[in-house]
């Protein structure tokens, strides 16, 4: 896959090295120090940092401004963008704004429904869906045009990603859906958190059977469990999450104070096993409000030091 953008993440992936990304959620207020602090904890252990976009529909400091803070620190942000809150004018405009700050990565998402957040009575937009957002960014970059057909002066050069959940229903369209995202323009994929490794391996086989692993860089998503309670919650309450009983049992078998350590162990073992799967090109470590553990996970998983580029 040829390099098409100034993205550091793209360069690392194209070089064949395993990439490591992580993510940070912006604060619910104006204090940028909160995001800067999180970024400082992980910056030497990851190649790029995703900034979530009003995740679970809870209003926060915007992803774009947070990405700019990271960029000003000399880091490599991945702008997450959901189509829930913006029409095609705002989307294209924000893409230009991000690119003007040298933000070179974008993750295209549809976003959680607003009923989960603090503005349940608000409208959603969904002028585009995540697939059409992928097409939009690629069109702006590759054709140098706005959706309306006009030329863009200095088009945005962004490395374009999407999320994929290998565990969502219906299973039979999981690989076709990835194929669709690749056809729409996805160049990297960050997957949903993986706990059920066997099912993930099955999915990767379907992906390889279609040759998709050669068309898109797949970063396997992992999230360390903090407690048995969290494991149960993820298993039972989070849609599209597949946490096998053995994992829940393993967490519950430890005394409460040892559970965080066990969660980290499970995460590291998962990474070791995922490394062996053909087509896995890196890891997306989502340590939810537990960013301080990212360095340990990355080091113990043998993913440190990170490449200079």
């Amino acid at each position: 896959m040829n390099i098409k953008t100034p993205s550091k993440l793209e360069k690392i992936l194209a070089s064949g090295q395993l990439a490591v990304t992580s993510e940070c959620g912006p604060p619910r207020g104006t204090n940028a120090e909160e995001i800067i602090k999180k970024a400082k904890l992980i910056k030497d252990y990851v190649d790029a940092i995703n900034i979530t976009d009003n995740q679970t529909s809870v209003t926060r400091l915007c992803s774009l401004a947070s990405c700019i803070h990271l960029k000003l620190m000399g880091l490599e942000p991945v702008l997450q963008m959901v189509t829930r809150d913006r029409n095609r004018i705002a989307i294209q405009s924000d893409i230009l704004g991000a690119a003007s700050f040298g933000i070179n990565n974008i993750l295209c998402l549809s976003g959680d429904h607003q009923c989960f957040g603090d503005c349940a009575k608000g409208q959603n937009v969904y002028d585009l869906d995540s697939m059409q957002l992928l097409q939009t960014v690629r069109y702006m970059r590759d054709e140098g045009k706005f959706l309306g057909g006009d030329d863009i002066k200095h088009p945005p050069k962004m490395f374009v990603g999407a999320a994929e959940n290998p565990f969502a229903d219906p299973f039979e369209i999981r690989a076709p859906r990835l194929a669709k995202k690749v056809a729409a323009g996805a160049e990297f994929i960050q997957t949903q958190c993986i706990y059920n490794l066997e099912r993930f391996e099955q999915w990767m086989k379907l992906v390889r059977d279609r040759g998709l692993h050669e068309k898109v860089y797949i970063l396997a998503g992992v999230t360390p469990l903090k407690s048995a309670g969290m494991a149960k919650y993820m298993k039972n309450k989070v849609p599209g999450m597949d946490v096998p009983d053995e994992i829940v049992k393993r967490m519950a078998s430890k005394p409460k104070e040892k559970q965080p350590e066990e969660g980290i162990n499970i995460c590291i073992e998962s990474i070791q096993r995922l490394k062996e799967i053909e087509g896995v090109r890196g890891f997306h470590v989502m340590a939810i409000e537990w960013e301080e553990k990212v360095p340990e996970i990355v080091q113990r998983a043998g993913l440190y030091p990170r490449p200079k580029e």
Partner: peptide, 20 residues
Amino acid sequence: CAKRILNGPCGGSSKGKCEI
């Protein structure tokens, strides 16, 4: 579709039901 998504399903589809 609660999101009027034209290339679905979104990640919120679970056991044939909508996330909302």
